[in-house]
């Protein structure tokens, strides 16, 4: 039953992963002799430290704010009868489902094409675009997971005197812990690997060519033709994502099998 997935995983996941790891050891402009030390030598690139700062900014601002906003919106949608609920979730999804080309126009209309950019706010603007394009999908998923909580449990808690706030904090959030963990893992990865949002903003005048680590990795791999360096930087981005994923997995019973 799992064989179609295993075949796809092997061809499109595992083999490319092994290939990419092997490719890192090949000669690169950053390491002419070629070895796995490219993984840390690439960190000496002058763009890495400022970009690392941008990633840390996103991890500290974008990730927690998105988690809080998504949970708040989903809990509000689930807390009472809201006429137009489906329409609202669709509207929250909209900024995320428009493709790159059209979203440039939307942001141009939204911010104004003749604005003199204050570059000190660039990180906030990118975090804002990332938030607006990602939050809607997570609202759909978290609202769905909230709807899954057995109604009897919620009614019993209500009878015991739980108000909406207590119901949300003490019953609902703990019961969807795995989904929140999943969201945390993917948001962390997307903050470290952010690409489309800064790339998109270059089209409306922000100098964001190398704003993120992923843009630097992309420029190595596909503009400078140095795939070893590009992949080494990609693996550097993968490591913190994996560490944070392991922390989430340990904190929740994420990998536990359904027992019978």
């Amino acid at each position: 039953m799992i064989s179609p997935y295993l075949a796809l995983m092997l061809f499109c996941g595992f083999i490319p992963l092994v290939y990419a790891i092997n490719e890192v050891s090949k000669p690169s402009w950053k390491n002419l002799k070629g070895s796995y030390s490219t993984i840390y030598k690439i960190l000496g690139d002058f763009r890495v430290i400022p970009d690392l700062g941008h990633s840390i900014f996103l991890l500290l601002v974008y990730v927690p704010l998105t988690i809080i906003a998504v949970l708040a919106l989903s809990l509000l949608l689930d807390s009472t009868h809201v006429p137009g609920n489906t329409f609202m979730r669709l509207v929250f999804l909209l900024p995320g489902i428009v493709s790159g080309g059209i979203s440039v126009f939307i942001w141009m209309f939204f911010i104004g094409s003749h604005v003199n950019w204050n570059l000190n706010n660039e990180a906030w603007i990118i975090a804002g675009v990332a938030f607006s394009s990602g939050a809607g999908s997570w609202v759909v998923i978290q609202y769905g997971s909230l709807r899954s909580i057995p109604r009897e449990v919620l009614e019993a808690a209500h009878v015991d005197g739980c108000n909406r706030w207590k119901l949300a904090i003490q019953i609902k959030i703990p019961m969807i812990g795995r989904y929140i963990g999943y969201m945390g893992i993917l948001l962390t990865a997307s903050a470290i690997q952010i690409y489309s949002e800064p790339a998109l903003l270059t089209k409306i005048g922000l100098p964001s060519n190398w704003w993120s680590l992923n843009q630097v990795a992309y420029s190595y791999a596909f503009q400078a033709g140095d795939f070893a360096a590009g992949t080494a930087l990609s693996l550097d981005m993968l490591i913190p994502s994996i560490i944070i994923a392991i922390i989430f997995i340990r904190k929740t019973d994420f990998l536990k099998r359904s027992s019978y």
Partner: peptide, 30 residues
């Protein structure tokens, strides 16, 4: 109950988290 269950979940997670930049060229070669 299948062998290597946790390993398969881990590889699923890793391949989901790895930047597409690292996977694009190997995929192209394959």
């Amino acid at each position: 109950v299948i062998p290597f269950r946790k390993f398969l979940l881990f590889i699923t997670l890793v391949t989901m988290l790895i930047p597409i930049t690292a996977m694009a060229l190997p995929l192209y070669v394959l």
